[in-house]
């Protein structure tokens, strides 16, 4: 039994997440896509942990989850602040920092 399908699934999910970040404009959905990418990475980590038979991969996945939690907290707070002032959750509207 090869674990390759898991890795392939991980790659597919990662790519879908990336494309989502690039195409969606709602900041919340963009964040969800980022989460999707992180989860895809976690899947790869856990898969490799099983492949190699040690727990380091799982510990790494655990760390990723914590970082993701922190990121979501701050990110959502930022989205809230922006929404409060601009009445919009679109990432394209926050485009004043430019030429």
């Amino acid at each position: 039994m090869s674990l390759t399908p898991y890795i392939v699934l991980s790659a597919i999910l990662f790519t879908i997440g990336a494309v989502g970040v690039l195409t969606r404009r709602n900041a919340l959905v963009v964040f969800m896509c980022v989460e999707l990418m992180l989860n895809a990475c976690n899947l790869a980590l856990v898969t490799f942990a099983k492949q190699h038979g040690n727990l380091d991969g799982q510990v790494a996945a655990f760390f990723v989850m914590v970082v993701a939690a922190a990121e979501v907290v701050v990110g959502l707070a930022i989205i809230m602040t922006i929404f409060r002032t601009r009445r919009s959750a679109s990432v394209d509207d926050a485009s004043l920092l430019k030429y």
Binding site: M1, L3, T4, I7, A49, K50, Q51, G53, L55
Partner: peptide
């Protein structure tokens, strides 16, 4: 990743 042959799975038993 499809090309890579991962080899035998060690498993988490140990």
């Amino acid at each position: 990743v499809g090309q890579v042959s991962l080899g035998a799975v060690t498993g988490m038993g140990a």
